[in-house]
Design a protein around this nucleic acid. Structure first.
Lengths: 119, 119
DNA sequence: TTAACATATGAGCATATGTTCAGATGTTAT
DNA sequence: ATAACATCTGAACATATGCTCATATGTTAA
């Protein structure tokens, strides 16, 4: 087990204790993957704008295309991605779908992100 | 100006008022871009693990390769990306570089992200 | 049921991204 | 100065991603 750690390091393992600790506390592949997937979803200018618009009010797809100035198809594709990540939800009223944020996490993530970016 | 908004919508603009408001409050292209870039940087399993390891303690590059089980070259490339985004910093001690988190934003972003992912 | 509208979806294409490989750079010890 | 080590970097390649275009789906009104 410790050998395994050392074997992985092809040169010299400088701080075995730190490495052992870090490995013990490390996120599972699955969790790290989900987290990365979430951030990757937020990592696109179109989706950032889209989410930001929805942060203030609900909008139908047509509205969104007007707000962010993209084709309806592009917006629809992006909305699907956001839906899959459970970042947005929608309600239907007739043939119109109204999208809104699914929870408050996005707002908090944006806050933190903006703090980092603008400092 | 209002015409511009309406022109962009090739079908029917359903909620002109909402669209106008949303456009007024919208992030600038630049800010949205920076924000997206930040999240994109967090949107990779390797980098998530790397940052998570550094969240608890500083590590040298060799340690990191051992912790996350990737080649030294891959780790080095990723560290550069994180450096460029000012997410990590390093101090040199002899030939060894010790990396650590640049600020506390990552930790908060991870918190929020994990909450979303695990709920 | 048919036409019109709002939205969704699949395929295709161009670009972006992550890893590997080979070699470069910078630091310390000899 | 030279060798050894820790880390970095550029090029190359395979995969992932975002947009567009054409078409499909679902809803309402006629």
């Amino acid at each position: 087990m410790e050998r395994e750690i050392i074997d992985r390091c092809d040169t010299t393992c400088i701080h075995e204790e730190a490495v052992r600790e870090a490995r013990k506390q490390m996120l599972s592949d699955e969790t790290a993957g989900f987290l990365a997937e979430l951030f990757r979803t937020l990592g696109d200018t179109t989706r950032v704008k889209l989410l930001f618009a929805l942060m203030q009010r609900e909008l139908c797809v047509c509205d969104v295309t007007a707000v962010i100035g993209m084709s309806e198809s592009a917006v629809s594709h992006q909305l699907r991605i956001l839906r899959n990540q459970r970042l947005v939800r929608y309600r239907r009223q007739g043939k119109i779908l109204y999208y809104s944020l699914a929870d408050s996490h996005v707002a908090r993530l944006f806050e933190q992100g903006l703090e980092h970016v603008t400092e």
